[in-house]
Design a protein around this nucleic acid. Structure first.
Lengths: 325, 325
DNA sequence: GAAAATCTTGAATGCGCTTTCACGGCTCGA
DNA sequence: TCGAGCCGTGAAAGCGCATTCAAGATTTTC
């Protein structure tokens, strides 16, 4: 494995110059720079990231912490992060907390000293712990907002409003909301947006695990609540609701309309195709990575809130007569 | 940030002893070991992985290269790798090649010098390049087999056989195979297994991109081929086939039976639920990580082939009268 | 035309850690 | 009892690189 030393010798310059030629090209004369670049190319030189990190004190790696990699939501964000990071020649260390706060804490503690910045995706930790972490190094929070910290989130409220307006336009008057984990920031946002809308009766049927099974469990509550439409915490839950509704002999959207959140790929596959509030997941990954790069301890931490879009498909339709509660 | 040096001072021992107490506990007297551990705990000491890597020449990090993180297949494997790696106190660097060979090459070159081992998941690279990589450092190939290299793959042939036997038992005689990327090793394995089965007419309708849209595109070919059943490269493709079949007014399994591969979560959600050959994805991630840890340049590289299981759901049923071709 | 400012360069230092190496204190066999 | 072997320990070297510092080369300024 060729080292910078080798490149320097091959190019007939000092290691210092070789280092500069690669990292601060402007500070080296054109001729030497070319000699170094050529030698590096010829020798197949690959910088040793560990050595770079150790010497400079900056790690180059990006740490990405997600609750569940197998969840398409986070997988898509991860993909966005990954592609943006590659463009900046940085690698991504991903860690999956399995939706567990304790594990999350541990992972953050483990990861943080060894990365140049941390991307906390839908963190379950309390705010003050997140702020502690941010005090120790660059941190960008994704899909959550923490006062004083850089974050990338979604304009959930407008998504909720669009969804409810859509349902109202279809004649629905009683809508059930199937929530996510009670500790989830984005569930709280959805709930907050719900109360702000008039003309529609919202029945909160409680929180569920943010996966298919959660939706299955919630469907019966929805039926019992006598709602003709459901807004679900996310697409996975919405899909679960639909599956159970189907199993109980109810038709979607004939008897009940269903709206999800996220617009994961599966939302378009299923039949009926799911009406959902689409979140720009990949873009969130991009933005977060970009933010992390440009983070400046002095400046006010930037907060970007990405626009969302209601994608109307086949799971919503005109209201049926209300089911009896 | 506390360093080993600090811990050593606090424990009243030399840095060498502190280092040994943490990495080779057996080589330190019980009393000093406890002093060091206590001091480390008290100071919140976190080893600097970069320094460890630089000093020892071993990186500790595991590099995971996948074609597409957003594909539930790879996301699940990644989750498996991740959880196993955490158990061994190693971090995972993931890179997404976007199904592109050139990017894959580049990523491998980039990553390899900076990780302790590489997990190549469904690599698209030619065998000799993979072997080159393996010559430069520990490599385990996942979902592909390369002669002379450690690998974790699936017993695809028996899955194909089970699927075909299932279809035969249902009275099908003409089965279409919708393939994946032609460069894909696992597609070749599926094809190889197909030809070995008698009593069933297999129509190869060509390869598709291994995603939902690929299946949509293939469905019309299936209909034209006059098959009453379809075996698809993977679940995503199978779902695409089903969607298009549905759109064309054909019923599943009434008119056409559909079988997928992988058993991604969505396979169980959709309606009709997809009959599929389930691959132990998470386990593959575990096994691969374990293999990587125990890789010994001297010994014969281990090859593990994981068993698969046909999961019969609702997308397969008795054969209808053959469609006319 | 001399002094000051600027730019390029190489020598040298050290990031935090692992790992020889050598040394003193042991135990053991003879 | 004495030397051979072993174990626990610390001093020290160095992994590959970025970066500071000082020096030389060049340009600029009055």
């Amino acid at each position: 494995m060729a080292t910078l030393q080798d490149v320097a010798v091959a190019a007939g310059v000092s290691p210092a110059t070789a280092s500069r030629a690669l990292s601060t090209p402007a500070s080296v004369s054109m001729e030497r720079r070319h000699r170094v670049l050529e030698a590096a190319e010829r020798l197949g030189y690959r910088p040793n990231r560990s050595a770079q990190a150790l010497a400079s004190g900056r790690s180059g790696h990006i740490g990405l912490v997600v609750p569940d990699l197998a969840n398409p939501f986070f997988a898509t964000v991860a993909k966005g992060v990954q592609s943006q990071a590659r463009g900046a020649h940085r690698s991504v260390l991903v860690a999956d907390t399995d939706e567990d706060v304790r594990a999350e804490r541990e992972i953050v503690d483990d990861l943080q000293p060894n990365v140049g910045g941390l991307l906390l995706c839908s963190p379950r930790m309390p705010e003050d712990e997140i702020r502690d972490a941010a005090a120790r190094g660059p941190v960008v929070v994704v899909n959550r907002e923490v006062a004083g910290l850089a974050s990338v989130s979604f304009d959930v409220a407008s998504g909720v409003h669009a969804a409810l307006a859509h349902l109202r336009a279809l004649g629905h008057t009683r809508v059930a909301y199937v929530g996510g984990p009670s500790t989830s920031w984005s569930d709280a946002r959805r709930r907050a947006a719900l109360t702000e809308v008039a003309g529609l009766e919202i029945v909160d049927v409680g929180g569920q695990r943010p996966i298919h099974q959660g939706g299955v469990a919630a469907a019966d509550l929805v039926i019992a609540a006598g709602a003709t439409a459901v807004l679900a915490y996310n697409d996975l839950v919405a899909l679960g609701v639909m599956a159970r509704l189907h199993a109980r002999g109810l038709s979607v959207p004939g008897d009940v309309s269903v709206i999800g959140f996220d617009d994961i790929p599966a939302a378009a596959y299923v039949s009926p195709a799911l009406t959902t509030v689409a979140l720009p997941l990949t873009r969130a990954g991009h933005e977060a990575t970009t933010l992390l790069d440009g983070l400046d301890a002095a400046a006010e931490p930037p907060t970007v809130r990405l626009p969302v879009e209601l994608v109307v498909r086949d799971s919503t339709g005109p209201a049926a007569l209300p089911l009896k509660g």
